[in-house]
Simulated assay, not measured.
Amino acid sequence: MAVADLMVLVFNVILSKIKEAYFPHSFLNYTPICSFVIALVYISLDWSVWLTVTFTFDRFVVICCQSLRSKYCTMQTALKIITAVFVLSIFENIPIYFIFEPLEVINDVPWSCYVKSSFYTSPTWVAYLWFETILTPFAPFVLILLLNTLTIKHIIMSNRVRSKLRGSNTEACHTDQETENRRKSIILLVAISGNFIFLWMVNLVCFICVQFTDTQLMATDYNDSFTIAEKSGYMLRCLSTCTNTFIYAVSQRQFREELKNIIARPFLAIANIFKRLTTKLSLSKNVIK
């Protein structure tokens, strides 16, 4: 997930947005290279989103499917799923490379990427756009909501059974560490679902508007309200790739412990050096005496 999200930042933010703003006449603006970078943007986005879905499914299996847990939650399974998601993301977004044409040709060199007019009228391209949007983000919306809802339902039912088995001792229920861990899991799952849906919602609404109005995607008129909304949706979409990994990582106790160790390591090294120097000085004073 971290690698996929980093790819989104590299391709979407650095090689696309920052390049447009500060290096508009670089070699990255040649139409073939520009089209290739945009295709990489969509590949990395799909990879990031679907790894979030697979991670959500992984947590669902761990919590709700104890019989499947030992078979599914293995290093080999994870490697196969990550590879499959990456390969499918590539094949799904290959057509993206072919939807652009040069905005202008200077000295027989094609510059910039402009969406072909046929992209909005051709039945094939319209079908592809629907397929792309259903696959990302509509299907992840549904799957993440469904899996997290089932997981939360399972946790709540397990807590009720556990409370009945432990009796009606309120203080014991309040100090139950297992119940507290499950409560934190519910908060995590709700945060992931809400974060993903909220940050992708603007992008989804813009797509729906394109289908039922005369507006066009990837327009360059920054005085137009739809263009502003579309660009804001892209920004929030990039933010989503960062926050999901952050939420998953910070919620893990082992990650927090490792982070504390990394932060404390320089100070511990300095303390050890100071301790050794103090010990040597004490020994030297003893020898002199």
Rank of each mutant, 00 (worst) to 15 (best):
L165H: 06
Q177Y: 07
K184Q: 15
I187S: 07
S158M: 11
R182Y: 08
Q177S: 08
A172C: 04
E171L: 10
R166T: 12
E178P: 01
T170V: 12
S185T: 11
S185N: 02
K164E: 13
H174T: 06
R166D: 01
A172W: 01
H174K: 14
E171I: 10
D176E: 03
Q177D: 00
C173S: 12
S163F: 00
H174I: 03
I187L: 14
T179D: 03
N181K: 14
S168M: 13
E180V: 13
I155Y: 01
V161S: 09
Q177V: 13
K184A: 04
I186L: 01
S163Q: 04
R183E: 12
R162I: 06
T179C: 12
I155T: 00
E178C: 11
A172L: 14
A172N: 07
N159W: 01
G167S: 06
S168H: 14
T175V: 09
T179M: 03
R162G: 05
E180C: 07
I187W: 15
L165V: 08
S168I: 12
N169R: 13
I155G: 02
I187N: 13
N159M: 15
T175D: 03
E178L: 12
R183L: 10
N169T: 05
R162P: 00
R162A: 10
E178S: 09
S158E: 10
C173Y: 08
Q177T: 12
E180F: 15
N181T: 09
I155E: 00
S163M: 04
R182M: 09
N181H: 02
E178A: 10
D176H: 02
M157V: 08
N159A: 05
I156R: 11
D176S: 07
T170P: 03
S168D: 05
E171K: 06
I156H: 01
I156M: 04
I187V: 14
E180G: 06
R160P: 00
S158A: 09
S158H: 13
E178F: 05
E178K: 10
L165S: 14
N159R: 04
L165A: 09
S185I: 01
I156A: 06
S185M: 02
T179K: 03
E171D: 12
N181P: 04
V161Y: 05
R183P: 02
S185R: 07
E171R: 09
T170R: 15
C173K: 06
D176I: 08
Q177E: 14
T170S: 15
E180H: 06
H174N: 11
K164A: 14
E171G: 06
I186D: 11
R183V: 10
N169C: 15
I187D: 00
A172Y: 01
K184E: 06
R183C: 14
N159L: 11
S185A: 15
C173E: 04
K164Y: 03
L165D: 05
T179F: 05
S158C: 07
I156L: 09
E178H: 10
S158K: 07
I155M: 06
I187K: 15
R182E: 15
H174L: 12
I156W: 01
L165G: 08
G167V: 14
D176R: 05
S158L: 07
E180P: 01
R162H: 12
R166P: 05
A172S: 01
E171F: 08
S185D: 11
S168P: 03
I155S: 00
S163C: 13
A172R: 00
R183A: 13
